[in-house]
Design a protein around this nucleic acid. Structure first.
Length: 265
DNA sequence: AACTAGGGCAACCGCGATTGA
DNA sequence: TTCAATCGCGGTTGCCCTAGT
C-alpha cells in the first residue's frame, strides 16, 4: 500500500532537458493543452516523470515567460510582497506576470537577500537587523515576523488597503523612481485590490491553451504538424506573420531563444 | 594557462493540499 | 467518510560558468 512514487524510478530520465525533449513537450502541450501531467510523458514520448514535465513547462517553456534579470521595479515589488507573504513564492510570482516562482525564489536567494543584508535589513523579517536582535532578546515568543502564519491569515483582509507602512519596507536602496513606482502602486487602491485578488493573475490572459483534446488548429493557430520546426522558424519570420496573436510574441520568442540555447549545449 | 572558489540557475525531492471514486 | 491518486509548492541540491589567483 502506501503512496506510489509519481513515476517509475526505473527508466525515467533525470537531469537537464535536451532540445529534443523540449520540442516534444512543447509540441504535445500546444496540441493537447495542459492536462494530467502524469500522462504527459507517455503520450508525448518522453522518458520523464510527469512532475518533471510540468516543472519544465512552467519554469522554462511557457511562452508567456519573461526572460532575463528582474527589473528594479520587479525586485522592489518582490521585496514588498515577500514582506507581506513570506516565502509564498507562487503567490508572489502570481503578481509578477511572466515570472515563475522558481525564478523569483532563486533571485531572492542569490540577489535580494544579500542586498537586504547589506542594507542591514533582515531578509526574513524585513526589519532592521539591530532592532531584530533587540526584539528577539526581549520577546522571542511574540512573533511579529511577516512569516508569521497569523499575519498570513490576515492578508486577504488587507485587500486594497494594503498598509503603506508595510510598503515602506526596504526601499532605501531603490532609486527614488522605483520607490515612487512602488508607492504609486501601493497607493493605487484599485490596483492593489486587484493585486491582492488571488484569482486575478496578472499574467496575460490571452495565453490560453485549448482544452485537452482540442487541436491547436481550432484556436486559429498554425498547424503543429511541422512540429517545432515551425516554432523554430518563427525566429526568422516573426511570430506575427503567422497570425499567432494568442501568444505574447516576446514569450514565444523567448522560448525559441531558449530552445536555441539548448541546442548550443 | 591552469586551477580554484563562489555564484547563479535549472532541476529534483518530499510533503501538504486537493480531488475523485 | 475514507483513502488512493495526483497536483502544486517550497526547500534543497548539483552542475556549469566565471572571476580571481
Amino acid at each position: 500500500m502506501g503512496r506510489q512514487p509519481c513515476c517509475d524510478k526505473l527508466g525515467v530520465k533525470k537531469g537537464p532537458w535536451t532540445a529534443e525533449e523540449d520540442k516534444k513537450l512543447i509540441s504535445f502541450i500546444l496540441t493537447n493543452g495542459q492536462c494530467c501531467w502524469r500522462a504527459v510523458p507517455k503520450l508525448a514520448g518522453l522518458r520523464r516523470c510527469g512532475k518533471s514535465c510540468r516543472l519544465r513547462w512552467t519554469n522554462y517553456l511557457r511562452p508567456d515567460l519573461k526572460r532575463g534579470l528582474l527589473t528594479e521595479a520587479e525586485e522592489q515589488l518582490v521585496i514588498d510582497l515577500h514582506a507581506r507573504l513570506g516565502n509564498r513564492w507562487s503567490k508572489i510570482a502570481a503578481r509578477l506576470p511572466g515570472r515563475t516562482d522558481n525564478e523569483i525564489k532563486n533571485h531572492w536567494n542569490t540577489h535580494i537577500k544579500k542586498k537586504l543584508l547589506k542594507m542591514g535589513i533582515d531578509p526574513v523579517t524585513h526589519e532592521p537587523l539591530q532592532e531584530e536582535a533587540r526584539a528577539t532578546k526581549t520577546s522571542s515568543q511574540a512573533d511579529h515576523s511577516p512569516e508569521s502564519d497569523n499575519q498570513h491569515e490576515q492578508l486577504p483582509e488587507n485587500n486594497g488597503t494594503a498598509s503603506s507602512e508595510n510598503s515602506c519596507s526596504p526601499t532605501e536602496n531603490g532609486s527614488s523612481d522605483e520607490s515612487h513606482l512602488l508607492d504609486s502602486i501601493c497607493d493605487n487602491e484599485p490596483l492593489m485590490s486587484c493585486l491582492w485578488e488571488d484569482e486575478t493573475p496578472l499574467v496575460d490572459p490571452s495565453w490560453e491553451l485549448p482544452p485537452a483534446g482540442q487541436n491547436i488548429n481550432n484556436v486559429g493557430l498554425p498547424s503543429w504538424d511541422e512540429n517545432c520546426a515551425w516554432l523554430l522558424e518563427c525566429q526568422d519570420f516573426g511570430i506575427q506573420d503567422f497570425g499567432f496573436d494568442c501568444f505574447n510574441d516576446v514569450g514565444v520568442l523567448n522560448t525559441l531563444d531558449t530552445l536555441e540555447m539548448g541546442n548550443k549545449h
